[in-house]
Design a protein around this nucleic acid. Sequence first.
DNA 1: CTCCCTTTGAAGAGA
DNA 2: TCTCTTCAAAGGGAG
Length: 447
Amino acid sequence: MPQHNSGEEDDLGASDEMIAFKDEGDQEEKIQENAFTESDLADLKSSLVNESEINPANTPVDHPEAIRRAQDAQRVYQEKLSDHMEDGIKHQEEPMYKGSGYSSNPFLMLSDPYLSIGSVSTLSSKVPVVQPSHGVHPLTPLIPFNNEPFSHSSHSPHLPADLNQKQGAHRSSQTPDIPPFYSIPPGGVGQISPSMGCVSSPSTKTPTHPPPQTHTHTYTTFLKPHSEPKKEKEPKKPTIKKPLNAFMLYMKEMRAKVIAECTLKESAAINQILGRRWHALSREEQAKYYELARKERQLHMQLYPGWSARDNYGKKKRRTREKNQDSSSDPGSPKKCRARFGLNQQTDWCGPCRRKKKCIRYLQGQGRCSSPISSDGSAIDSPPSPVNLLQSIENSACSSCTLTNTDDSAQSEKNFPSSASEEAKIPGHKSLVSLLDLEESIAVKAT
DNA sequence: CTCCCTTTGAAGAGA
DNA sequence: TCTCTTCAAAGGGAG
């Protein structure tokens, strides 16, 4: 199924960060064709997320099958979840979504992705709980390859003791029964799926994504780091990660495929592609991930009742934030050109902002830049990042990746010059200067 | 070694 | 209620 303008709608609520596909050239056409408004799309997405949550009985007429499957999956999930809470072992012996639409879902979950231990932990738990920072989310392992049950579940570790503490009494009652599917090698198998055999090219070049492994192998591999040196360090409290949203789940599933198809390695570029593909997904397909994400959140809530996303604030980009705060101490001042001028005045944006890069004007100048830079912004332009180049490469060199965005660039040019420039296809993609020039010329034209 | 980049979506904070 | 910010994954690139 072709694109539903599912892409444009979210742009509404989208953040200040303009995205490439927003402006996809034929979006207007698509909108007309599908008679969708942005609000419709927003509603749609909202409904995708909520339909089973809020009103399971309210089945959209246009995707009854998808919803039915989702509901089935949810039902199964609920059953499984109960099982998990009662028996941390049993759940692993059955495919999570058997009989549901997710049975083919390539996700493979063997570990608790929510637990992140910066370095090998010295937690007192007897059971080693090494949490790979890039583990697979808890739901995915419930969908083992070939429906093959994991036979090692009974040996799976439980959650770390301090985690239990964190969760408090409420959680402690559940913790002992938490599904022990929390062990997987970093970078895990989760990204490789049997169903990804759909990848046309056998592509052997995905070194970071080893072929599917048995639970045993995986588990062993995963434990290995435990016996390694770093354990003497001060105990780091495990970080409970945020549950993955729909798009993140989609990325996890599709990343390897994109890498194989496009021979790209840079995640930033890959993510751009994935973003486009995400928008190109049909409602059913997206619904699948929204449903999964919803379950992720549910499970996460069950596992960590007291957890808040706020808990992780400051653990990642703290330095960046501090830096930004230093440079723009005035809390009231806009931090970005886009925030200050808005999308309607993109010509006033600084170059980096127009390239969706970090604003170099208001971050540094505390929003007091008296006069906007020249319309082309060239004076302060920074060279395009490699990611932009890769994007160009992707557009020009990867046929499979251009499937969903061949028309994007045209639209970008129409509706969002800066994006258009990013979408520009650079045949040789050799010269940064050329790229920059091209981008600038396009931007100027558009303005 | 650490941060950046890039994507979408969820959640929290603040106005 | 709305807007803005942060974080979730990923891994090459840059400093």
